[in-house]
Amino acid sequence: MSQETIDILIVDDQVGIRRLLFEALADEGYLVKMAGSGAEALKILSCTLPALVLLDMKMPGMTGYETLQEIRKHYGPLNVIMMTAYGDVEIMAQTKDLGVRHYLNKPFDLDEVRVLVKGLLAEVSSLQLFQQDIS
């Protein structure tokens, strides 16, 4: 975890959403990277591991769910927030099984995103501190 260079990876095929989240979260001082597809996201992840991934559910090509499966296979318990425009119960239940705890229903409130991201990253950093303490 020590060689990480970014805090958050945004994965969405919609350029507007990517841009919005980038601006909003970069303003908060996080290091943010963007990916326009699941494949691109996995490529970035292979180089650098963020503390949090914001992953859109419905994307052309590799879907959010498939991307999530790959992430779990290669990177274990990475923090993932799923974003959906449907609020689809069934897919949500599936991703829940893959350890996703947080969802953002589009259109989301930016303040809500900020609070959620801040909370999760604080959790991650406290965990890191705890792990460092142990080591």
């Binding site: 919609q14 507007g16 959403i17 841009r19 601006e23 589009k106 259109p107 409130d109 930016l110």
Partner: peptide
Amino acid sequence: IRNPMTTVRGFLQM
């Protein structure tokens, strides 16, 4: 519709 709405709403909020 919701995707562009998200963008518009988000930037308006910003």
